[in-house]
């Protein structure tokens, strides 16, 4: 018993010691997967080697290029303008102390992983000037401290999640030059109270994006012509349908009446 207890104490103590000198395993996983998912043709990330990935942070000093540490945790990750390829690993969500993620001006592809929602301390998200595809994950709303969402110059599609307007600290929002479509959420363009409002420059360069502060819908908006078209179309359809229905109904009733009169004639001999 005593021996076992002693061993346990030693083990715990060892573990604590290991923990104190080792880096956070979450950050480690995060960076390890990121290093895997990124391609570095120019060998810009030369010190992203196994030894440093094992221990990305030395207290507040970072062993990795582009990473900023504080208290042994990755606080910022700035890998901009390094001609990186590849995708953003969903395991990025393990860097839970991450306050700033800047992967701008690379050649990243693939989607923005919705797993980013786990980065609850994220204040800056700059993925601009890449070739990211897919939708803007609405889950970004879970990153309540987001100050900056910069996604301009990508290949993003779909609508702008309306929920992003709920981010009270959002001061920079740029989705210009993508392939986004649909209406611009008023929660972003016309925010309530003192929250910063985003003007047209945040949304320009998306062919199918419409509504304030961009011009109202052009092709899909309800112009007078569209209303007239809808009205005439449905009207004509209903005209045809209703007259067909009435004609059929009249035929049926006529037939019934004919039957009724037939009955009378058949009854006649009984008198």
């Amino acid at each position: 018993m005593d021996v076992a207890f002693g061993a346990a104490v030693v083990l715990v103590a060892l573990a604590v010691m290991m923990r104190s000198c080792e880096s956070d395993p979450n950050d480690e996983a995060c960076l390890r997967h990121l290093a895997k998912s990124l391609e570095d043709p120019n060998r810009s990330l030369q010190n992203w080697i196994e030894k440093n990935l094992e221990k990305p942070c030395n207290d507040s000093l970072s062993n990795l290029q582009g990473a900023t540490c504080n208290n042994g945790r990755i606080l910022r990750l700035s890998l901009n303008n390094l001609s990186l390829r590849g995708t953003i690993s969903p395991f990025l969500s393990n860097c839970t102390y991450l306050q700033s993620l800047d992967l701008s001006s690379n050649a990243l592809t693939g989607p923005i992983p919705p797993d980013i929602q786990s980065l609850v301390n994220l204040a800056v998200l700059n993925l601009s000037s890449n070739q990211l595809q897919g939708q803007i994950p609405p889950q970004l709303t879970m990153c309540a401290y987001l100050n900056v969402i910069d996604l301009h110059d990508n290949l993003l599609t779909g609508p702008i999640p309306q929920q992003l307007g709920l981010l009270v600290r959002l001061s920079t929002f740029d989705v210009s030059n993508n392939r986004l479509s649909g209406p611009i959420p008023p929660s972003l363009s016309n925010r309530t109270g003192t929250l910063p409002r985003f003007n047209a420059t945040s949304f320009l360069g998306n062919k199918d994006l419409y509504g304030y502060p961009l011009p109202p819908i052009k092709t899909r908006g309800l112009s007078v012509l569209a209303i007239v078209g809808i009205g005439l179309g449905s009207g004509l359809a209903s005209l045809v349908l209703s007259f067909t229905g009435v004609c059929i109904w009249l035929k049926v009733t006529e037939h019934k009446m004919a039957l009724d009169e037939g009955k009378i004639s058949q009854l006649m001999p009984d008198y």
Partner: peptide, 19 residues
């Protein structure tokens, strides 16, 4: 709503003679 309203209104209007 606008599209639906217009469509319904027009449909009713045009169906009126048949009705």
């Amino acid at each position: 709503a606008i599209a639906g309203g217009v469509a319904a209104g027009a449909a009713l209007l045009f169906a009126a003679p048949a009705i």
